[in-house]
Design a protein around this nucleic acid. Structure first.
Lengths: 210, 210, 210, 210
DNA sequence: TATGAATGAGAGTTCATTCAT
DNA sequence: GATGAATGAACTCTCATTCAT
């Protein structure tokens, strides 16, 4: 239906606008009128589509993070080897590493998710689902690499995936905060180091050492 | 001086109260009147001691995190061997692992710091200082263990410290969010695993496997 | 346009209400909620139409004084002779002289303008414009009377207009303050005296002496 | 008594401080803490000497205007001829005319008195007394000049004094507001013109024309 | 006298939400 | 669907005033 179609578009448009505003101003400083302005509609309309500001922001956060996951996932699946996939995943995960994929915004939103999830059960659940999916993606890459012989045999894939994912999270926080000691390059090196050692393979020299 | 003393106490009392309220309600939901109530004083007094709500909350966050660091640091320095120190540091870092040191609150505050630091230069700087100090503590333990022969020789102490600290951060997020798949025990195991492997030593069997 | 029309009305309504409240309570004691009550709307709406309390009050003051000028001006222009015009202008200027034009309120507002203009550049400028316009009106009457032969030739019209306008201001202050020695009648007499002497003509006996 | 003496000093000091603050910030913007700071004491002490902020400000206003009157009066009485006295009175009355007696501050305070007197009976009464005294001073000068033959005979001294005093008030307002069309010189000329014409004498040429 | 910590009563302002059009 | 006027509930911050010391 045309109407339905249009409605869906408006939903998306508003979510997009909200995500952009949250990125710019932070969750706590985001007002409905900001989102309305960003979306080019009136504040009243926002609440016509979303039952409350709270619901809107929650949806916007998961929506944005979902978008990121999908984009990343699509890119990675295209690559032929597990080594390339893992390398790409790390490249994409380091905020500010690839000029064409800054990822600073996504990480900022991701941290906002954490804060909200501390007190919002719904958001906590969404976060868990997103995180789980992310770890699974890493685990899948590892399993593929093991099948293909690219990686050595590893005791427990899920444990390794957890360690890798968590390392990325922990490092990204610092990078995204502009920590002068933890640059994107240093984060990248650290991730590559762990990947190489834990999976028993050699990345190209250029990747591992500066 | 009595006056000075009292004034200092009030400052601390209010900061304490603020930290408690932030923990409970979250930074965004913390009102001056909440802090006043928690501290058992009038809202007006809060602004007699702190120039604005914003300044108060910022100070409360760094104050609380500072407190945590000092407590942890004091405990660790008391231990004789580097192995014990590292183990204790990990024990204390895992939220909900030690019943007597829940640490859930501290981690929640720490995440609030991150969000604020995204847009508040001052807070970003404070965060960097606190983080650096934390990494240094880990690095120092590693250096001590290497000198004493407890740990094998490691290529780059600072890199290792960064990896360990970041892993802890990344895992703690999930634990503190009550992720059903990432329990305190699993986080503990993951940290111990990395510590053991990267430092080339054996923890007691009971530590490594559940 | 209906919307535009309505919006304009609300603006005026609020300015009117504000002027009334300022008259009643004084500028310093006027609260937004008073204006809202007087206008029969919610306090929030006041700030929907005016960016701040300060802007509202400033606009209300100039608005009210503008209104007064327009009303007076319209009345005077209707009169055929310069003598009548000048007499009418004086009649209208003496607070409490004509029962049907008390003018006490307008003078009170005018004094509030002075105080504000002491520190508010914008208001100072507005005041100057209003005052200049007022003096011009007097000067125009004098010029007309000179052309028509009603008044004798006077050296400098603008100087005379300044003296007359200032005399009126200075006397009105005392009358509006309810000075027991400076009654409306006495002020009226004083103004007529000066007008007659400076312009070299005779008012009807009844005007000059009580 | 020493105590009494000191108390009196403190009273004066505080009144002085208050007058200075009112001049600087305006009556409405004057806070007790401002006065305290200006006087170099604690805010508490202000209310130890004055029963309320309102009383303090009212007293400060009349005090300051009283001071001005006394200073002017003393100066004038010293002069030998009525002509000189009147000229001096005018000189002193024009704000910004004499570099050594700016008088801008006093006029500003005087306008604040008017606003307050609109609603404060007490202040209205004080104002009337001060004003009356001022007009009497002018009337006395005129009477002296008439006795000495300096001035021609004038019908009604009090009426003339009222007209002169009011003219001065009305002009001073504009000068003190920095009206670009009403400069101190122009005000001075206007006052001298009226004085000369109404009293039938010739000032030195230099006084009357620019 | 003098201080300054402490209170409490507002006041302005913001903003989510509603609803008539 | 869409607007934007209107409301009302907070919330921060200010400041006169009190009072123990």
């Amino acid at each position: 239906m045309a109407t339905n179609r249009q409605t869906k578009d408006r939903h998306q448009e508003i979510l997009d606008a909200a995500a952009r505003v949250i990125t710019e101003r932070g969750l706590a400083e985001t007002r409905i009128s900001d989102v309305a302005e960003q979306a080019g509609v009136s504040p009243g309309l926002i609440l016509y589509y979303f039952e409350s500001k709270d619901r809107l922001l929650a949806e916007a956060l998961t929506f944005a993070n979902d978008q990121f996951y999908l984009r990343t996932s699509r890119e990675i699946r295209r690559l032929p080897s597990a080594v390339d996939q893992l390398r790409r995943l790390i490249d994409l995960s380091v905020p500010g590493y690839l000029p064409e994929y800054e990822r600073l915004d996504e990480w900022a939103l991701w941290i906002e998710v954490w804060v909200r999830a501390l007190r919002d059960k719904e958001m906590a659940k969404d976060r868990e689902v997103l995180d789980e999916r992310w770890r699974s993606q890493i685990a899948d890459i590892i399993r593929n690499g093991r099948s293909s012989g690219e990686f050595g045999s590893t005791e427990d894939v899920d444990e390794l995936a957890l360690r890798l994912a968590s390392l990325i999270d922990g490092l990204a926080i610092q990078v995204v905060m502009n920590d002068s000691k933890v640059t994107p390059e240093r984060m990248h090196r650290a991730c590559m180091h762990v990947a190489a050692h834990e999976l028993g393979f050699e990345f190209a020299k250029s990747d591992v050492s500066p």
